[in-house]
Design a protein around this nucleic acid. Structure first.
Lengths: 228, 228, 228, 228
DNA sequence: TATGAATGAGCTTTCATTCAT
DNA sequence: CATGAATGAAAGCTCATTCAT
């Protein structure tokens, strides 16, 4: 947790430090990250760093919160889903957020991934209900709702399904990028967002149909819309 | 690639070194692994290490081949699948191998995972057909066969599906371990293999049914066999 | 080339480091010099060294420039030769500088010598005239002037003669020191400079007469002034 | 001093070791030479080395004796100088030996040079007469004879002159090689010896004339035979 | 006698952290 | 609060030497 001095900093100076930290941690992970690179790239003095953070691990923890915050910001920036959206519409929205995040903030996503591998928090217990919660809990909550609305096949183990959906949401993006191949680089620097590329959308539709076919009580899939 | 001196070593000494290396790389990854730990834990002199390997990276590369070899050994040790096994039977077998491997050799699996995150090889091109191959290719080949045999829904994008199955195969095991909870530790050191635990089998059946429902042309699932 | 941090150091600290470096390189040469000795003798921390220099080779390069600088300083400190000084007067002055340098800074001279043996740059080409230049060029330039002024015997190969004079200038000093024997040690630490010792001067006169007799068109030597 | 086991070795095996040692010491000098290179290049086992020599320094000492021996062999192989040869004829012969040795055995010559710089033995005392002897003594002996025969100018300091001649003899060869330039490489591998190249001979004549003019009582030089 | 695996002291270099200014 | 010089523990790696076979 950063010291208060860090929050007293000007926004630009704070941003420069965070930017450099993200760059370094995305390349190296906590254990092999090098503080020298961070202070050099952020243009601050080495001594100043220790005015803001306890140590390197402290900065790393801060970056992890940054990742979550930016993800939340992304959610806020995207159109809020229609409140009457059904289970699979919402599920699509959830997955799409993860994918868009990974496409827009690949460095943050990589940090998250690495952290996931190093400190896998598979499940946690809901402090209110005492129930198990998979991953970040949103998929778990959604599927629980889906059961109540009779949208899900009754035989599906929702806890495991939530975990699998979490997996897919977090790791499908690199595939998407690879799949669209050379188009990616041309899109990377431009204003047109890769997430709205027609091919990505088609792949996404296909993925969602597979999921819906897999777990829905009454799948409404567009079975003949696709061609590879 | 280890020097020939390494292969001239007694099996026990070689094993001690590999064991220590696996321990270290599983905890730390190449960049932050510490040679001192490896030589200390394997009981060899530091100088001896450099008689066997060029450097730490060389050892790391050897450990990666070890991972593959042990996986192959595992496949060989398991009952060869019936040649007339259908697509989903074979798919189950493929996923099960990955899961069993992760359950039996968690450290090797962790090394593989970390390497996957650090050097993601999403897809490659089949040198014969020129087609894309997802992950290690086995899932891709299987699904391609599935299409030919009319086992798969025609609208499924098999390339993406293969990638997703690869993901699941590689990352579902930690969930299984966590899910069975305290039973795991009691099983971990014993003769009874966690992979054959009834609960694991039930979860596994459920997972396979979800997958089959998701991509099969004509799913034959045991929809009402399960309950959480 | 040292980092800027080195030049920001206090003169005394910088001097301590240079002193220790000269001591070590004079004894051992670049390849077998030991950094530990340098940091121990200069009283700095090992880590500090790497704030000042890239590596040991960097320091070595700096010491080589030091050698040149101190030689230049010596030239500046000595009486500037009379501009109308004739060829052999100037030649004497040139050789004397090298000898005095070697007598006053034996460690620097040794470093220069070793570097000369390891990286022998026998001759180079004058960028202006395209002619060959022996050694550091000063002897070559002088002899060329000597030819123009009809001071040199016409049959002498001036290029080779310049090389030989360079050799003598650089290597006669150890002989001088050895020759005056025990007087050397008594002079070494004192205020009286060995270069102005009467015996050294006599030897020097003799040497110059040999040279003049060897290459002058019209040698004016004091043939009967000497006795061993 | 090698152990007796070394001398019991077959000539070819001994030669392989010496060859590899010469290669290494010529490149690196005693302190930075690497035993591994020597045993690798000579094809002997590391343990065997210590059967033949006490340590690396022991081998180095042996190589130094080798240098002297090969120089002696060279003298023996060259036409013995006419016994009635006069002082300057003999001096020419002495210098020529050093030059030819350096041209024929550049690696040995480099070892000798480096050793000279590292352990300069300027003068020694003649055990019989108690007089000073410069360098290897041969030049000193020759000049002493020259004085007796009235060949040398009486005012010349023969001890210093002997040292200078020794210098020239030992260090003129690199200049010769450099001077003849590209011809050197074409001669290097061939049967024609660089020492008998006409240009080398001409330079040599010039050098000897300079020396004779410098120290002879009655120089008989071919003053107008040369042109640069 | 020949071998080459085993050794560990010692090397250069890195880097998080401290602290005087 | 800002700075960057100073630090030294610890890293990867080298290599002369020993020793069991």
């Amino acid at each position: 947790m950063p010291k208060t001095t860090f929050y007293n900093l000007s926004a630009t100076r704070r941003a420069r430090i965070e930017e450099a930290a993200i760059d370094e941690f995305c390349k190296n992970g906590l254990r092999s990250a090098v503080l020298n690179n961070i202070v050099a790239n952020s243009g601050i003095a080495k001594g100043s760093f220790y005015q803001y953070f306890e140590n390197l691990e402290d900065l790393y923890a801060h970056v992890l919160t940054l990742v979550q915050k930016r993800k939340t910001d992304l959610v806020a920036s995207l159109e809020t889903p229609n409140s009457i959206m059904d289970t699979f519409g919402y599920l699509r929205w959830l997955i799409q957020i993860s994918v868009v995040f990974m496409l827009r903030e690949p460095r943050l996503a990589k940090i998250e991934q690495r952290d996931f591998v190093d400190h896998p928090v598979i499940n946690s217990i809901d402090p209110e209900t005492g129930e198990r919660i998979s991953g970040d809990g949103r998929f778990h909550a959604l599927l629980t709702q889906g059961v109540l609305h009779d949208d899900l096949a009754t035989w599906v183990d929702t806890d495991m399904a939530a975990y699998v959906l979490n997996l897919i949401a977090n790791l499908i993006a690199p595939y998407m990028v690879d799949r669209i191949g050379d188009k990616a680089s041309s899109l990377a620097d431009g204003s047109v967002d890769i997430a709205y590329d027609p091919l990505v959308q088609a792949l996404f539709d296909n993925l969602m149909d597979i999921i819906e076919a897999g777990i829905a009580r009454d799948p409404q899939i567009r079975k003949d819309f696709y061609s590879k």
